[in-house]
């Protein structure tokens, strides 16, 4: 099965990303809730990259590879924009977000709460973000 996709840096590509993930996340041990939440976490990272690292430049692109193992799934997201290291961002306080009437900030909370591990590295102009979810056998 084709386990990778390249999307261009426009928010309209997010629907394409979800279509790919729905087709890819078919492992029998995944519940419907798991599938939606994994899709959401991956989309949140990609949306951040599209908007903040690439300023929605449709000529730039992001690559996503889904790696399946018996006990875990790794989503490897690569891009060549301004490095956006999600690990540098602390989970904002929900009441503060509300008080400031902010629309942003919730995506990072979702990614950090849904995923078990997050890795980030930047080398030779390529940023790699790995979202890891472990499953009990």
């Amino acid at each position: 099965m084709e386990n990778n996709i390249t999307i261009y840096c426009q928010t309209t590509a997010l629907a394409e990303l979800r279509y790919f993930l729905r087709k890819t996340l078919t492992m029998p041990f995944l519940s419907e809730n798991d599938k939606l939440q994994l899709m959401l976490a991956v989309e949140e990272v990609c949306a951040n990259l599209i908007i903040h690292s690439h300023d929605c430049n449709g000529e730039d692109y992001i690559n996503l590879e889904v790696k399946e193992y018996p006990e875990k799934i790794i989503f490897e997201i690569k891009d060549q924009g301004k490095a956006f290291n999600i690990l540098d961002y602390e989970i904002p306080d929900l009441i503060k977000v509300k008080g400031e009437k902010r629309k942003g900030g919730l995506g990072i909370i979702l990614v950090k709460k849904i995923m078990d591990e997050i890795e980030f590295e930047s080398a030779s102009g390529v940023n790699t973000c790995r979202l890891i979810k472990w499953f009990q056998s």
Binding site: E43, A47, K98, G99, R102, K103, G107, I109
Partner: peptide, 17 residues
């Protein structure tokens, strides 16, 4: 069928109002 943080953020941003 689905809502990401972009949509949830819209609700959040109006709660004070």
């Amino acid at each position: 069928a689905y809502i990401s943080s972009a949509g949830l953020g819209v609700f959040m941003s109006y709660l004070e109002d």
